[in-house]
């Protein structure tokens, strides 16, 4: 598969603050590549260096085979950029914005078609200031798609949107990928990264701490499956002792939470007695064998958010 973005040993500082340090990654053609990280981790700095809006201090950058600094004009003709913070003049109408921006590109996409595709047809004559947050964001995506770009940058595209708008925009982004374009996005919604991205890079303190598909990240770094159930009486000590190796058991106001890894199929030497294929069946079997009454048992699979928190910690940033 072709590489669309190639970043090697990127470094960018603002005064004494190191924003990103020794960052290397590739974005492949046709994928949705996501970058997640706590506030101040360096996501925006990285994406802005790749877009050519910021000059890196050090490192090699290649985007669509171009140097984002020296060949910025050519690059801007072939990429679409949605910025985290930007605006249009309050009194500019939706169709006017698309018509104006289309004039900047040598081979623009048909903006009338984009208007329909992004569900903005009814808002055609509405002034920018009168659009809702979701409509503004859809208009910015339309502007990003205007150059008929090979690569689309989406920086925090669903921040501040309600769930309906967010899901609608995810569908749009998948549709963009379906048309053979590459998407490079940043987000701080782990659910967004998990559902939308083909590959995710987790950034912390200006470095990449993990990069893989969401499923592989969860498998490699997930804290394991969680079994939660309520009991009325106490839990005999023999129950915790009989749990599979590595599983932990916590009781809080009658609610039991058992955390452990599901069966490790890659390591048969571990033995199936201690490590059954599924934690939930082991727990249920144990509860039944020891005749412990329980209610509302459910099993929770680890998510990208768990991976993220285990890799970047729970400390508040900024």
């Amino acid at each position: 598969m072709n590489t669309v973005v190639h970043v090697e040993s990127l470094r960018k500082t603002y005064g004494a603050t190191v924003a990103v340090e020794d960052l290397s990654f590739d974005v492949r053609e046709g994928e949705i590549f996501g970058m997640v990280g706590p506030n101040g981790a360096g996501k925006s700095t990285t994406i802005e260096c790749v877009e050519g809006l910021r000059r890196p201090d050090r490192g090699t950058l290649q985007v669509l085979g171009l140097d984002p600094q020296r060949e910025s004009r050519q690059l801007r003709e072939r990429t679409g950029i949605q910025l985290q913070q930007s605006n249009l003049p309050d009194r500019m109408k939706v169709w006017e914005a698309l018509d104006l921006y289309a004039a900047f590109y040598p081979h623009p996409a048909d903006w009338r078609e984009l208007l329909t595709r992004l569900g903005l047809e009814e808002k055609r004559d509405t002034a920018f200031a009168h659009l809702s947050g979701g409509q503004k964001q859809r208009l910015f995506i339309a502007l990003a798609l205007l150059p008929d770009p090979q690569l689309v940058f989406l920086d925090e595209l669903t921040t501040g949107l309600d769930p309906q708008a967010r899901h609608a925009i995810w569908d749009l982004v998948r549709d963009v990928r379906g048309r053979g374009k590459t998407v490079f996005l940043t987000t701080h919604f782990m659910e967004e990264a998990e559902r939308l991205c083909d590959r995710v890079a987790i950034l912390d303190h200006g470095r990449i701490v993990a990069l893989d598909t969401p499923a592989a990240l969860i498998h490699a770094f997930g804290t394991g499956e969680r079994i939660v159930f309520d009991i009325t009486g106490g839990l005999p000590a023999s129950f915790a002792a009989a749990l599979p190796a590595g599983a932990t058991c916590e009781i809080h106001e009658g609610r039991v939470t058992i955390t452990g890894r599901a069966g490790n199929h890659e390591d048969p030497a571990n033995g199936s007695a201690n490590c059954p294929a599924s934690l939930v069946s082991a727990v249920v079997a144990l509860l039944t064998a020891q005749q412990i009454p329980f209610r509302d048992l459910r099993s929770e699979q680890p998510s990208l958010e768990d991976v993220f928190l285990s890799l970047t910690g729970r400390q508040l940033r900024e």
Binding site: L83, S86, L88
Partner: peptide, 17 residues
């Protein structure tokens, strides 16, 4: 000044203009 403060120029900068 308004174009700059509101990020309207920032938006224009992402284009080849």
């Amino acid at each position: 000044a308004t174009y700059r403060e509101k990020g309207i120029l920032r938006r224009l900068r992402t284009t080849p203009v």
